[in-house]
Design a protein around this nucleic acid. Structure first.
Lengths: 203, 203, 203, 203
DNA sequence: TATGAATGAGCATTCATTCAT
DNA sequence: CATGAATGAATGCTCATTCAT
């Protein structure tokens, strides 16, 4: 019994790949419809606009992964465990994307490029949500003496950045060859990263 | 003695401000020419295309700031000092931009949006150059026992991310209010950040 | 015994109301099918095209009302009685429409907007038919000395215009308030109108 | 010395003819640009939109002709002279149009077809202005005993209609042959029309 | 019959770039 | 050198109509 993908899913899949590989603005409706193997008009049977397709992708592929991220805060575990769980969720979410471009980070940083207020709000909200959770984890860690005394905002920003690039290392696929003699790829372990955050570079 | 700015510089200055404030795609050639106080056609007397203007700005305003960054590597100082110098250069460069948007990071992440291969190459090259220097600093630090044993690629990516966000914290101006009770603004010191990188979060 | 309306009639009724309330161009096939409570495709089982629906409505709702208008001409009554009967028929026909827009006049004047040659011909034919009857009434009145000596074409055109606007005064509902102090509405009598046509403005 | 028409005028002339002959909706921007002998994009150098072209035509070709129509009201002449002057202005204005379609009446009645609020307002205002002036003329005539006692609104509507069709008799060029034996064309005199309005049909 | 999913021709508008003056 | 008028390729979206089921 062959499961036929719904047209809606065909469109989403096609759009997803195109947005990732060519970017939002370089992806034309006709591209999506051709990639989906359907007519141009059919796209509009399932989505109101190009923005709407993007918004749907954002919600289902990205936002939904963070629905329960605030749960971390109320758990009865140490702050470093919370930090680990936070990173775990990030990893789990982003590992779903098989992009060779950084979809998530890209999305967030490019959010100004969109005009759709609903979409912009969604993106901003997710950024704020994640930032807020991380901020609270760190603040709590500082308060309870687990973490060093420091500006929690600074720590949050820094660690957000570190996590982003840790996750999105694929951003630089072209240049990795230039950087390292061996054509290394990302194969480090999460613990190692967490250790870096918690204990720093110094021996 | 009044120094009259050359038309070329008028164009570059106008474009610079517009790119920063409205973004590349929202800045039209006519905007640039009007801001520069010259005719639309005149822009093309000095630059081949809109991309060419951007490329020139990238080279003079951004790339040039990193001309000597490799010098850090050959200095006879400890690895953590090298790391500090690297960050100093980053801070010095980016502090020149008075953007309320993160020009540099934005640039890097949005680089796919450009078609001009020369421009794309320039952007990628700068990213690679910086990444490479940081990578070598860290690798050396690990080799000489100053830094902990870890994947240098992981560390480089993480720290790159941390630096980026440390620098570009202004990216989230809207959301800061949501995140912190007090309407805090970025006022931390570089040492605090460096300490975080070197010693981590843990007490 | 419940009379179930045929699908064909459901379509016509739905289209009729929509055409009147939203106009021909603002009425979409999907609107008609939904208002009729049937599927979009079903519309095409009963009518070849949107134009065809309109044509049918024109014929049944409008044109048919003038089937016997030429009978007036052969009646053995005075010319002013004939004129009265002509106007009576007009009033009777148009009073069937409960539009707040002038369907008939609108139709005639907007006829260029249609492409269907058959429809255009039908509209033109009705206009010509009515015009012709009125022309003959007036010409006869002049010939038999009942009406003043004048160009019958001029009189026909003028009186056609007067009748049209007399009937379709509702066309200007918005502006009436600007025009008259009291927010008057049309409540005059036909005799008054007929008197104006026959005896003119002068005392 | 050849007077070269400005591009703006070329566009307006081309649009004018096309709007009249094919109607607003059937006239495409490409039609206008081709008729004007210029590129499609050039149209937008002179006008913001298709609507804007129409609005400009309406204002310059139609509305402007009625700028001083209210002056009639304050003149020290009899009511029937005022009526004559009103009609004179209508004739003068509309005689400028060499359409074989009724531009003005068409315009007013089709005004709903437009979405541009400014344009709709302009059309409605003109209708109201003319209607209001005529209404005041008639009301005054009734008050001072020059005209018969009757509903001034009824008279205004009727006479507006008569004037419209008197003026726009060209609306039925096709059908005239059907109506009259001789292929008559409009060649009546204004007095005859005025006489009809003032004294009616009856001898 | 009845359906509604699928279609694609058609169109207003934008804007980087050209080039005659 | 300087200009800005002129250009046209490019694109998201609409909706009457078709047709497989």
């Amino acid at each position: 019994m062959t499961q036929t993908k719904s047209k809606r899913d065909l469109i989403l899949d096609a759009a997803y790949n195109l947005f990732i590989n060519k970017g939002y603005w370089d992806t034309k409706i006709i591209d999506i419809s051709e990639a989906a193997g359907i007519g141009k008009g059919t796209v509009y049977e399932y989505f109101e606009s190009k923005d709407a397709i993007f918004l749907e992708l954002f919600r289902t592929k990205v936002e939904s992964g963070y629905d329960n991220i605030t749960d971390v805060l109320s758990k009865e575990i140490s702050s470093d465990k919370k930090l680990k769980e936070f990173i775990d969720i990030e990893l789990e979410n982003t590992s779903k994307y098989t992009f060779n471009k950084n979809f998530l980070l890209d999305l967030m940083l490019k959010s100004d490029a969109f005009r759709n207020p609903e979409l912009i709000a969604s993106i901003h909200n997710l950024i704020a949500k994640k930032f807020s959770v991380l901020y609270q984890i760190i603040e709590e860690g500082i308060r309870n003496g687990e973490f060093i005394q420091m500006d929690p905002l600074l720590a949050t920003a820094s660690i957000t950045g570190a996590i982003n690039l840790y996750i999105s290392f694929d951003l630089f696929p072209i240049n990795l060859a230039d950087v390292t003699a061996s054509n290394k790829t990302k194969n480090w372990r999460e613990e190692e990263f967490l250790n870096l955050l918690l204990n720093g570079l110094k021996t």
